[in-house]
């Protein structure tokens, strides 16, 4: 049998459930830990971000209306799809980070467990932070957490897959839609993860993934008036002040988080809504 030429994957963006190239046509080079060539993912522009925001805004409306149970099931489904492709992700992580396949597989399994952990929270949030408030008067007074809308996230550079899951899962589980900028150094697992999302019943546009330059795009994330919240965990410290200033115009909720799973990551991108209702007739 003759030597066949391997068919390499073109790493593109993931916007509205489709895999477009960047409108700018730009790409950049991603190398493995030894400096060898791995791939040319898209170098997203601010216009790709703009288009993604429009789509995310529409998608958020129906996603937020889905029942908490349903959202949890879909996140669980994402975990199932990821589990089935563990080997592919392990080899990508291993090439990028220079760790053994066994170590990389551990990160994949941790990522699956992380998704399941966040999936479980969807129908427990209102019990955790919602309340019937004691008020003096013939009224019920409820407080319930609601999703914010469109949230941006800049994923961390540390763990290319786990850090990415940490960026998206807590945002979408509550009914937000997310536009996430994947790790600049190691975006390949994130883009392969788009294929997992595409086959897991997550409505198109709820999770949109960009790859590209953090310093170029982070200010546009921050200043965009139709993005309600922003996770800047992956933004370097010297850039954070500028990002926060740019985000002040529309009082954007800007947070960064430590490693690890926490319900605080979910609640940071929710708002508490309080309603009054008369008691009795």
């Amino acid at each position: 049998m003759s030597d066949r030429i391997e068919v390499k994957k073109t790493y593109k963006l993931f916007i509205g459930g489709a895999f477009p190239r960047s409108e700018s046509g730009r790409t950049y080079e991603v190398n493995d830990h030894k400096g060898g060539f791995l791939a040319n993912p898209a170098l997203a522009s601010r216009k790709d971000l703009r288009d993604a925001v429009v789509i995310a805004r529409t998608a958020h409306i129906s996603w937020a209306k889905a029942t908490a149970y349903n959202r949890g099931q879909i996140l669980y489904r994402i975990a199932e799809m990821l589990e089935g492709r563990a080997d592919q992700f392990a080899s990508e992580i291993s090439a990028l980070d220079g760790i053994s396949i066994k170590e990389a597989l551990k990160e994949v399994h941790l990522s699956v467990d992380r998704l399941v952990w966040y999936a479980g929270w969807s129908d427990k949030l209102s019990a955790l932070v919602g309340a019937t408030n004691p008020v003096s008067g013939p009224y019920f007074n409820f407080s319930i957490p609601e999703p914010m809308g469109v949230v941006g996230a800049i994923a961390t550079e540390k763990n290319s897959l786990l850090g990415f899951i940490d960026a998206i899962a807590p945002i979408i589980v509550s009914g937000n839609s997310v536009i996430v900028l994947a790790s600049e150094r190691a975006p390949l697992p994130a883009m392969s993860f788009a294929e997992v999302l595409a086959t897991s019943d997550l409505p198109p546009g709820v999770c949109n993934i960009l790859t590209g330059s953090k310093s170029e795009l982070a200010p546009w994330f921050a200043s965009h008036m139709d993005i309600d919240g922003l996770d800047i965990t992956g933004v370097e410290h010297d850039l954070r002040a500028d990002v926060k200033v740019a985000g002040a115009e529309n009082l954007k909720r800007i947070h960064s988080f430590a490693d690890g799973q926490s319900p605080a990551r979910i609640l940071s991108f929710m708002e508490i809504k309080t309603t009054w209702h008369p008691i009795g007739v």
């Binding site: 601010r46 200043s223 965009h224 008036m225 139709d226 115009e249």
Partner: peptide
């Protein structure tokens, strides 16, 4: 303004 507006405006 130099930044993207929201339809809310």
């Amino acid at each position: 303004d130099g930044f993207y507006p929201s339809p809310s405006y």
